[in-house]
């Protein structure tokens, strides 16, 4: 995977270049915004890692330039600026993901791979967790190849729970997922949907109740 790394700090740039090369990325490293724009005009890359605090042109302007010319290039922002408004501004300007310094090289590599899969159109419409399979486009669900019929809200709830296995979601986070249309929710709607999901999936232990907090999905 050809990656253009734009990082002005010599030691960090060097460490990322070596680290990502070892993790099967082909890295071209430049240390200024002007060099990055020139490099993107000269060659086609599959990913761009962009530092925002560059010495000549601000990273935001490099990003805007990239978006004007090459809409499909996935861009990962790598910066020490981590305040919410800065993250929002970078994402609104066309960045696809955001990693703040200091970071873990393994996490950076994993995020780059996920970003490439998503933006490259290779992300699968199906999610498989153990014997459970979901198609996020057709909203179909199978348990051990047996189709399971779920309502739209039940599907949304299951998709959120499955998206991050073992992560605990508070009841309010799950309720927000159910409340994407204007229809008001009953006070016990979440419990009812969880009950139905457990019944339909025929594996009551897959959705675990975390007392006083919320629920999580695991089918190890």
């Amino acid at each position: 995977m050809d990656v253009l790394l734009v990082e002005d700090d010599k030691w960090l740039g060097q460490a990322i270049e070596i680290g990502l090369t070892e993790r099967d990325f082909q890295i071209t490293w430049v240390r200024s915004g002007a060099a990055a724009i020139g490099e993107l005009q000269r060659q086609e890359y599959q990913l761009l890692i962009l530092d925002l605090g560059l010495p000549d042109i601000d990273g935001q302007r490099v990003l805007q330039s990239v978006r004007r010319k090459q809409l499909a290039l996935p861009v990962m922002i790598l910066t020490a600026r981590d305040e919410t408004d800065q993250v929002v501004q970078a994402l609104d300007s066309g960045a696809d993901d955001y990693v703040t310094k200091p970071f873990d090289l393994n996490e950076l590599a994993a995020r780059l791979r996920a970003l490439y899969r998503r933006r490259g159109g290779h992300a699968s419409a199906e999610i498989q967790v153990g014997s459970l399979r979901l198609n996020v486009n057709s909203h179909e669900v199978w348990v051990a190849d047996d189709p399971v019929r779920l309502s739209r809200r039940e599907f949304d709830l299951l998709q959120l729970l499955v998206s991050q296995q073992r992560r605990v979601f508070s009841r309010e986070q799950l309720e927000r997922q159910l409340h994407h249309d204007e229809t008001p929710l009953e006070s016990n709607a979440l419990e009812v949907h969880i009950h139905n999901l457990r019944k339909k999936l025929k594996h009551k232990d897959w959705i675990e109740t975390i007392r006083g907090i919320g629920y999580r999905f695991s089918c190890d």
Binding site: D9, W11, L12, Q14, A15, G19
Partner: peptide
């Protein structure tokens, strides 16, 4: 603190190599 982040990121990444 902000300025220390980049050298720290470099240090950690170098150590990971």
């Amino acid at each position: 603190a902000h300025e220390l982040r980049t050298p720290l990121a470099a240090l950690k990444a170098q150590l990971q190599q």
